[in-house]
Amino acid sequence: MPDWTQIEFQAFINQYDKSMVLNYAPTIMHSKKDKEPEAFKSLIALLFIFGFLLIYIAISIIFLPIYFSPYLFYPIVGITGLISAILLYYYIKSNVNIKLKECWFEIYEYYSPEHGKYFCIVYYPIFSGKCHPNKAKNIVYKLYQDELIKSKLDIAQVEVHFKYVPSETPKFKPLGYFFQYGRGFPFQSEEIDRNAWKYFPINKSFDENYLATANWDHQFEWREDLELDYDKLHSYAPWLLHKWDENTLKPLTEEYKKTLNIEMRPIKAYPGLMPWKGNLESQEFENYKSYKDLQIMNEVIEKIIGLEVKIKKIKDLEGFL
């Protein structure tokens, strides 16, 4: 059982000051070049039409010695080819920016006579989508989102920890941040580590050292990390700065958790850092759900295509979907 206890937001503000929720909401830098194809259904239709075309051509070749009608063959090939070209063009040109839409949060409390009282605000920045760097796998991932999650929204997590000292002013002493640290990897690298949770003291965020999206999976690094990574900084410029306000910062309710289908997402159910145990920089956290979505995606690929076939491009899926 976790040591943290969740507190309803209304109960929290009845006893404490709600301003800390807004004041410590992480400001995030996000690349404007983080995009995803919008016309996903067009791509699925393209795969089916193209698959039909290949089957029709194969059947026509098989029965060529027996019967061949150019009046039927060429119009069908021409029309389906034209439709495929239009759908492909529409899909390629339909890339839209992935945006930060809003930020939900939960509040947790820990208390013991020995260690005192601690609080954690878990922020959930909500992205409008996610695009896997492998174009072929991205199609399967979109199917996973559409069929199981019922939403294309992507959710990140950032913990902010506090120690409560009632005898001092202010009573809430900010300790630091805890999040998936994605520094050092290219933005479009398939190699990601979702168990790379790392703690940073609160002064790490001083001097406008904002959080920045580190990769397509919406892990984070610091602005100063990004400035040292010349290729990522300039290849994915411009970077937009997103700050939260009372309209975009909302308490996460059980009802909305069901809407987001949290259980099917690689989201941990409670804070991973335990500051009362000390040695914050060396604490590690592993979430058994970390790779749940990617595991399901890979299992689908293995069942449909097999282990031997490596897919990287959209054409690698032709004939399987």
Results as ranks from 00 to 15, higher is better:
D3R: 09
F9H: 08
F12A: 11
S19R: 04
S31L: 03
E36L: 11
E38T: 07
K41S: 10
K41F: 11
G51P: 01
G51S: 07
F52C: 10
L53Y: 04
I57F: 00
A58V: 14
A58E: 14
L64E: 05
P65L: 14
I66W: 15
Y67E: 11
S69M: 13
P70D: 00
Y71Q: 05
P75I: 01
T80D: 13
A85H: 15
Y91E: 09
S94Q: 10
Y111L: 11
P113T: 00
E114N: 09
Y118F: 13
I126K: 12
I126D: 00
G129N: 13
P133M: 07
N138D: 05
K142N: 04
Y144P: 00
D146C: 01
D146Y: 05
D146W: 00
L148S: 07
K152T: 07
L153K: 05
L153C: 02
V158A: 15
V165K: 15
V165A: 10
P166V: 04
K171I: 11
F172W: 04
Y177Q: 03
Q180S: 04
P186T: 01
P186Q: 02
E190C: 07
R194Q: 06
W197N: 06
W216I: 05
H218F: 05
R223K: 14
E224C: 02
E224P: 05
L228A: 15
D229G: 06
D229N: 09
K232M: 10
S235H: 10
H242E: 02
N247M: 13
K268Y: 06
M274D: 03
W276Y: 08
K277M: 14
K277R: 14
N287A: 14
Y291W: 11
L294G: 07
Q295D: 11
K303Q: 12
I304F: 12
E308R: 12
K312L: 06
G319V: 06
